[in-house]
Design a protein around this nucleic acid. Structure first.
Lengths: 325, 325
DNA sequence: ATGAAAGCGCTAACAC
DNA sequence: GTGTTAGCGCTTTCAT
């Protein structure tokens, strides 16, 4: 059977409220007593019961990350960084990889202090009308009913396009999901279209029909066989970039000599690819820190809620785009 | 403020114990009453409090997955599959990506019904002496103090070696972490050495010093420059295989024409690579199902515990090894 | 079929 | 400093 504070109380001949105080390192307990109690607790193998604790404190000190798409590298990296930031804030992070609605439901019942949502396709109408757990989403602000941290996708795409134009690429293709329902993907696509318009260039699109490496590999390969080869490409994510690179490589095209590449997502992994890949996006640590800070703020001061913001992306030039035509 | 069953009781003019019964779909409540209560509950936006519930039922219906290494694709895939299987068993799965000891601690305090451990480097002595939550580990049985599901790594390596020998490869190199502390990695390495011995061949080793794609890419590339090129390679994991393939490709070597490849890890993603890669290992769904079934068994019937077993791996031949020299 | 009441493990007033 | 006690939200006997 599980050890409770009452067991410790018996073993130490004090009342169980004293045990409670001792375990919480209250100054109201004499150091000797505290010491003794702590030793006994340890000896008995006591493990605090968070449920009981929560019931009275109303705090779980835990936040839930809703993350249905577990195998996108860029999100993986973001999750790791968020975890690091949470630790700094002395919050425990729990993940759920069920579908978003189920996860939100579970975390609500668990009464986590707050939730972080990595999901863009949430059917808004299916959400619980009243959610009494603070929820912060990583997505596209103003489309959502809850606070959202986003990225100035339009600016990101403009930075990429400008850089490619500067290197005198005559044609630029966007590789990614076109016309999908994911809001972040939509924003990138639209941002690209705008940026091209501003630069009076004809936008090209390579539809990947999915976000996996394999999707990009397949579709880019097909495209290269059927269409004239563009000077340069902008990939919508890390995984897409990897697939695109492989497709080019297989087709005997060199990066950046034959085709220049810039990818969305600002993560260090772009450094380690075969040819280091240029990237635009909000550096992942900054993104993670903002998400965590904002969520903590939401939890601590629900009254003055800013409903979200859009972060400024940065361009990191690497070899994949360094070729002036 | 949060709605409790007492609020619903007030709103429906019944006692709160009746509300509790109604919410739990007890047959002791008249259908009409039940219906009415359920409607009211829904209307008020009631969300059950799992902490309170646990306190009396002693069941969370939740299991925790301890998973410190979030970005190994093969484990990612395993986690997804485990999640699917858990759902079938009507258990909620929660992940923690903190380091193993911290995660175990957290899940213990949360009183999850059970824990699954994807971690091989656990310092056994630092573990809580008495863990009163059932813990099942994915690793190497008999080395661990707790129940463990493993894989017959030796057999896996033998299958791979035999297949390469059958295709008359004269030399076989093992690509992976050599002499590391990870038990699964150790088992693979040792299995390879044994299998080579049995076949009277001299084992070659390519030390990757890490488990990332980048580690393999870097080290294999270096090896190819300095050493004679082996006929064939056995990669210790999916990520290692991807890195190895890239290194070969960069060095102008064709798979399988110049070098044959077989990788450990039996996941569908090997189908989608550039050249489909042959693989040995326990198919991931079977692995996931075994882990979940075993853990559930451990939770339900802690008395007769089998302390673990080793699953039989299978060989899947794809293009990467189909070349008779 | 419904209600009253005990109690799960814990914290936080408050009393001593 | 330490003990007493109420109560968090819920399930579960046990009465009615």
């Amino acid at each position: 059977m599980k050890i409770t504070i009452k067991d410790i109380a018996k073993a130490t001949n004090v009342s169980y409220s004293t045990v409670s105080k001792a375990l919480n390192d209250s100054p109201l307990v004499k150091p000797d007593t505290k010491q003794f109690i702590l030793e006994k607790a340890n000896e008995l193998g006591y493990t605090p019961n968070y449920s009981a604790k929560y019931l009275v404190t109303k705090r779980t000190n835990t936040i839930g990350l809703v993350w249905p798409e577990i195998n996108r590298l860029a999100l993986s990296e973001l999750a790791s960084q968020v975890n690091v930031q949470m630790k700094k804030q002395h919050k425990q992070m729990l993940l759920s990889i069920n579908d978003a609605l189920d996860s939100i439901d579970l975390f609500s019942k668990m009464r986590v202090d707050g939730m972080l949502l990595f999901e863009e396709d949430l059917p808004q109408d299916q959400l619980p009308k009243t959610l009494d757990v603070p929820l912060l989403s990583y997505g596209v602000p103003s489309v959502n009913q809850f606070p959202t941290i986003g990225v100035k996708h339009e600016l990101a795409m403009e930075l990429a396009v400008q850089e490619l134009v500067r290197c005198q690429n005559q044609s630029i293709a966007y590789v990614g999901v076109i016309g999908g329902s994911g809001r972040r993907q939509q924003a990138k696509e639209k941002g690209f279209a705008r940026a091209m318009e501003k630069n009076s260039m004809e936008p090209l699109f390579i539809q990947t029909n999915g976000l996996d490496v394999g999707d990009a590999l397949r579709e880019v390969r097909k495209y290269l066989k059927e269409q004239p080869i563009p000077n340069s490409m902008i990939c919508s994510s890390y995984d897409i970039a990897i697939g695109t690179y492989r497709a080019l490589h297989q087709s005997g095209l060199k990066v950046p000599e034959d085709v220049s590449l810039i990818s969305y997502d600002n993560i260090p992994q772009f450094e380690e690819t075969d040819v280091p890949i240029s990237a635009v996006g909000v550096p992942v640590e900054r993104l993670a820190k903002t998400l965590v800070d904002e969520l903590v703020h939401l939890i601590e001061k629900p009254e003055h809620t800013h409903s979200g913001c859009e972060l400024i992306p940065e361009l990191v030039v690497r070899r994949s785009s360094q070729n002036v035509r």
